[in-house]
């Protein structure tokens, strides 16, 4: 599955990006370039689906793909999918159900949800059996505090809550395929029953550890979608205080700060002075904002006439390489203006 996801990303990048861009998108780097790439090449759904992925692991997989001849590098070190790789993609079309990934939306709450959900099950099922000493499988303090807070409310009626939680979880699992459901359950830890590690799950299912990570993430994304749609009370609590994060703008923290300033009417020069940042950085932020906020007023930065001129060239050319667009326009406009149009154009397309 991981191979499929990588090939899928590479294919969408249209041999205009390096291997590192794929990594940053999957890993979920909150940098302007990565967010722009994810938007531009329609990869927001897989953004940040594998935040634990280490660069060395990624490189290893990419090397294997290069060696097997499914991907290759062009002279600019841009990566593309070979004919053989494309065949793999068509052959496995629909196999992995990656359409259910919802990376950009769930990037910030996905891990939080998994931690709270897992620790709640472990804690409640042990305590309900009068076993008060167990090693929590989730170590981070914030999650433990969160579970403790809820436990204090539920403690007199743990059984009832567990029954509810079980009902809702079961209902969800029955909407997905058997294999994913089994994997999901194998991972859970409860009273006298410890979940399997990723390594063990990989062996059991005869796939790679990366595949397991992706399968689990996919199932949890579907779970989150299910909770948002059906809103079962016993599950909603895991995210309700963080629901704001779901809809939080898909942007870097630094861009968010810039946004707060330009909203008050500051110009690029003003923001540069206030934030002690370079012009190019502020411009990056504005491009990022244009992607994230469809209603952002960009007329301050580019006139309607200019916008239309650039948009025309973009529309006529499938290639989204900035330098090409710039030369098509006889170098009349700078990169900032072109990127701004691309950002807006991309949004209008959708």
């Amino acid at each position: 599955m991981f191979t499929f996801i990588i090939l899928f990303c590479v294919e969408r990048l249209k041999s205009q990006r390096s291997m590192a861009s794929v990594y940053h998108i999957l890993q979920g780097k909150r940098a302007a370039q990565t967010i722009q790439d994810a938007n531009l090449y329609q990869l927001t759904d897989v953004f940040s689906i594998y935040s634990k992925l280490r660069r060395s692991q990624f490189d290893q997989v990419m090397n294997q793909l290069l060696q097997s001849g499914w991907i290759a590098l062009d002279l600019d070190k841009h990566v593309y999918v070979t004919e053989e790789g494309k065949k793999y993609l068509t052959d496995h079309q629909g196999c992995f159900q990656i359409q259910y990934f919802n990376g950009a939306t769930y990037a910030k709450i996905f891990e939080l949800f998994v931690k709270r959900f897992s620790l709640t099950i472990q804690t409640y099922s042990n305590v309900v059996m009068h076993r008060r000493t167990f090693v929590p499988i989730i170590e981070d303090d914030a999650t433990q505090q969160w579970v403790k807070r809820h436990y204090q409310i539920d403690q007199n009626d743990l059984k009832a809550y567990l029954v509810d939680l079980h009902e809702s979880t079961k209902a969800f699992l029955q909407t997905i395929d058997r294999r994913s459901a089994q994997l999901f359950v194998d991972r859970l830890t409860g009273y006298q029953q410890v979940g399997l590690s990723v390594q063990q799950l990989a062996k059991k299912n005869n796939v790679s550890e990366h595949d397991i990570q992706m399968m689990l993430t996919l199932t949890y994304h579907r779970f989150l979608q299910y909770i948002e749609d059906r809103r079962p009370q016993s599950l909603l609590r895991f995210i309700d205080d963080e629901l704001s994060l779901v809809n939080q703008h898909f942007m870097t923290n630094s861009a968010e700060k810039t946004y707060q300033l330009i909203r008050t009417g500051l110009t690029i020069d003003d923001v540069m002075a206030v934030r002690k940042l370079k012009r190019s950085t502020i411009e990056d932020h504005i491009v990022e904002l244009a992607y994230a906020l469809p209603n952002l007023n960009i007329e301050t930065y580019i006139s309607e006439v200019d916008f239309n001129k650039i948009a025309e060239v973009v529309r006529m050319n499938d290639n989204r390489k900035l330098s090409l667009i710039k030369s098509h326009l006889n170098d009349e406009f700078n990169y900032f203006q072109i990127r701004l149009v691309l950002a807006r154009y991309q949004i209008k397309l959708n």
């Binding site: 099950i121 099922s125 309900v128 059996m129 059984k159 567990l162 029954v163 939680l165 079980h166 979880t169 079961k170 699992l173 058997r178 459901a181 089994q182 999901f184 359950v185 194998d186 859970l188 830890t189 409860g190 009273y191 006298q192 029953q193």
Partner: peptide, 17 residues
């Protein structure tokens, strides 16, 4: 046990309902 429904039940409801 390799039946996810009974497994889910034993993890989440270890007590006699």
């Amino acid at each position: 046990i390799n039946d996810y429904l009974s497994q889910l039940k034993s993890v989440m409801i270890p007590f006699n309902e």
